[in-house]
Computed example of a mutant assay.
Amino acid sequence: MEENINIYLKQDEPLQSCWLTLRSIIRKHDELITECVKYGSPCFLYRDKILCYLWKDKKSNQPYILFSDGNSLHHPVLDFKGRKKMKSMEVDPNKDIPIELVKEVLTQAIAVKNGKLSK
């Protein structure tokens, strides 16, 4: 657990606050969501399967949520950004986080994990 929180605390503002807020939104969304660190970034699991990551652009430091089942997620805020399977949702750390929008995409991603939306 200590490694999990340290990954957030090592970030400069405004990324740190943005990631901590996203962490809270994601963790509170479903009691079956747990977290770990993978590839040096926060990773969220649903029933022990990767749901999403918190990631940042290497050049701009702009944060985004990276969803693992991108091929099965269909939401206008999601983009492949050159990836083949994962889709991302950009988040502006200098503006209010669109909480309901994040929750919509999380709900869809969980439905895919539960087999309620086709993979």
Rank of each mutant, 00 (worst) to 15 (best):
M1D: 11
E2G: 00
E3K: 10
E3R: 06
I7P: 00
L9S: 03
E13R: 02
E13M: 10
L15R: 13
L15N: 15
Q16K: 15
S17R: 05
C18P: 00
C18L: 04
W19F: 14
W19E: 10
T21F: 00
L22C: 01
R23D: 15
S24H: 07
I25F: 04
I26W: 00
R27H: 03
E31C: 13
E31T: 15
E31H: 09
I33E: 04
T34Y: 05
T34E: 10
E35K: 09
C36T: 15
K38M: 12
S41T: 13
Y46Q: 06
R47D: 11
D48W: 09
K49F: 10
K49V: 15
C52G: 08
C52E: 10
Y53A: 09
L54K: 02
W55Q: 11
W55K: 11
K56R: 13
D57M: 01
K58I: 00
K58M: 01
K59H: 12
S60N: 08
Q62P: 00
Q62T: 09
P63F: 01
P63R: 11
Y64K: 11
Y64P: 00
I65Y: 09
L66R: 01
F67A: 02
F67T: 02
S68Y: 13
S68W: 13
S68G: 02
S68F: 14
N71R: 12
N71I: 07
H74I: 03
H75D: 10
P76W: 00
L78A: 09
L78R: 07
L78D: 04
L78T: 09
D79S: 15
F80M: 09
F80W: 08
K81G: 00
G82N: 06
G82P: 05
R83E: 07
K84C: 12
K84R: 13
K85H: 12
M86D: 00
K87R: 14
K87Q: 11
S88H: 05
S88K: 10
D92R: 00
P93S: 06
P93G: 06
P93N: 05
N94C: 14
D96R: 15
P98S: 06
E100I: 05
L101C: 12
L101M: 14
V102F: 04
K103H: 07
K103S: 05
E104P: 04
V105L: 04
V105R: 07
L106M: 02
T107F: 04
T107S: 15
Q108I: 03
A109M: 08
A109S: 15
I110V: 09
A111M: 12
A111D: 09
V112K: 06
K113D: 01
K113H: 15
K113W: 04
N114G: 01
N114R: 13
K116E: 15
S118V: 14
K119H: 14
